[in-house]
Nucleic acid binder design. Structure first.
Length: 321
DNA sequence: CACTTGACCTGTCCGC
DNA sequence: TGCGGACAGGTCAAGT
C-alpha cells in the first residue's frame, strides 16, 4: 500500500537498519527494475559496490538512499554503457531512488546483536510476506557487509529503483523526482497553500485534484478517500464549489489520514520482528476505503463505491454531503 | 486545454 | 474444477 505513510514508515525503519552499512553486492534479477537517470536499465552495479549508506529520506512517495562515493577505485566494466558509468563515477555520491508504484515492497533481513534474525517489510501487503526471500517477485537484491540484505520485490513490475547523482536530489530536480507539490506533513503546509493549489484545478472534482501530486505530494487513492471522509466532504464536489471552511476541514482531514496511516499502517504492518507476522494493517482501520456495502463506522449508513477518473472512490453518502 | 483512457505487468477473486 | 472477465494502492502518454 505504498502511499506517503507507508514510504515514511519504511524510511524510519530502514534508517535504523542500514545507515552506515557498506554495500557489497547488487543482484539484478529484473533488468528493467534498476534504472539510470534516463529510465534505461542500469547495468553497472559494480559501480555501487563498496559505497556506504549515508542517509535515507523520503519525498512524496519516493524513497531515497544516499550512498557515499566509492571507497576503492573500480575498473570500468567493459560491457556497461557510458551513461551508467558517468552516473556511478567512483568519486561522486549517488542516490538510489525507489518508487513502489502499485505492488512494490522493500524487505530487509539481517542479524543484529547476538545473531538474532530480524526482518522488516514495507509496501504492498501479501500473505506470505516473510516467506521465502528472495522469491519470484524479487527484482533487485542489495547485500551489505554485515550480512544483511535489502530485497526490492514487485509483483506487477510497475515500480523502479533509479541510480542517480546525489547532487540532482539536493536541488530536488524535477528531472529525477518529477513535479511535486508541498509535503503535507511539513510545517509550511497550511490550509491556504492547499487552497491555492486546489484552485489551479477549479473544474476538477475534489477527489481527483487531491490525488494530483502537484497539489499535495504523496496522497494516493486510499488516503484521498479517507481524507475526504474525515473532512465530511462529498468527493464529487467541484473544487470551485468548496468553501474556505471546507478546505480547512480537508486540510485537517488530510493530516489526520496520513498520521493515522503512519500510526497504524506503519507500525502494525510494516514492522515485523522474528517473522512473527502481524496481520493487521491500515485498511483494517480505514473508515471508507475498501468497505463498500459495509456500515459506516460513524453513522451506520452503507458505504458506497463510485468511479472517478477511472479509479474507485469510497464514501459515506450520509456523512459526506 | 481539460479530462479520460490505455498501457505498463501479474495476480486474485468472482460468477457462470 | 475450469475459464473468462473485472479489478487492483501509480503514473505517464496518447486520445477525445
Amino acid at each position: 500500500m505504498p502511499e506517503l505513510p507507508e514510504i515514511e514508515t519504511i524510511k524510519i525503519e530502514l534508517q535504523k537498519k542500514i545507515i552506515g552499512s557498506k554495500l557489497t553486492k547488487i543482484q539484478i534479477l529484473s533488468p528493467k527494475s534498476l534504472q539510470n537517470e534516463k529510465g534505461q536499465p542500469f547495468d553497472y552495479a559494480q559501480g555501487l559496490q563498496g559505497r556506504k549508506v549515508l542517509n535515507i529520506w523520503r519525498r512524496a512517495k519516493i524513497l531515497g538512499i544516499d550512498l557515499s562515493s566509492s571507497l576503492r577505485d573500480h575498473e570500468v566494466a567493459k560491457q556497461s554503457s557510458t551513461d551508467n558509468n558517468e552516473i556511478a563515477r567512483n568519486d561522486k555520491k549517488v542516490t538510489l531512488l525507489f518508487h513502489l508504484k502499485m505492488s512494490g515492497q522493500l524487505v530487509w533481513k539481517g542479524k543484529r546483536g547476538k545473531g538474532k534474525e530480524e526482518s522488516f517489510i514495507g509496501g504492498h501487503p501479501t500473505e506470505d510476506m516473510l516467506g521465502k526471500m528472495p522469491n519470484i517477485h524479487t527484482r533487485v537484491i542489495f547485500s551489505f557487509a554485515d550480512g544483511s540484505h535489502l530485497y526490492f520485490n514487485d509483483l506487477r513490475r510497475f515500480g523502479w529503483v533509479k541510480v542517480v547523482r546525489s547532487e540532482k536530489c539536493k536541488v530536488q530536480s524535477e528531472e529525477v523526482l518529477g513535479k511535486l507539490g508541498p509535503e503535507p506533513l511539513e510545517k509550511g503546509f497550511i490550509w491556504q497553500i492547499l487552497k491555492t493549489n486546489l484552485l489551479k484545478h477549479k473544474t476538477q472534482v475534489v477527489k481527483v485534484a487531491l490525488m494530483d501530486q502537484t497539489v499535495v505530494a504523496g496522497i494516493g487513492n486510499i488516503y484521498a478517500s479517507e481524507a475526504l471522509f474525515n473532512a465530511k466532504i462529498d468527493p464529487r464536489t467541484k473544487v470551485s464549489q468548496l468553501t474556505d471552511r471546507q478546505i480547512q476541514s480537508l486540510h485537517q482531514g488530510v493530516l489526520r489520514a496520513l498520521r493515522d496511516g503512519i500510526k497504524y499502517g506503519g507500525s502494525t504492518r510494516a514492522h515485523f520482528v522474528d517473522a512473527q507476522g502481524h496481520k493487521g494493517y491500515f485498511l483494517d482501520y480505514a473508515y471508507v476505503y475498501g468497505r463498500s456495502g459495509h456500515k459506516c463506522k460513524i453513522c451506520g449508513a452503507q458505504i458506497k463505491k463510485i468511479q472517478q477518473a477511472g479509479r474507485g472512490t469510497y464514501l459515506c453518502p450520509s456523512c459526506q454531503r
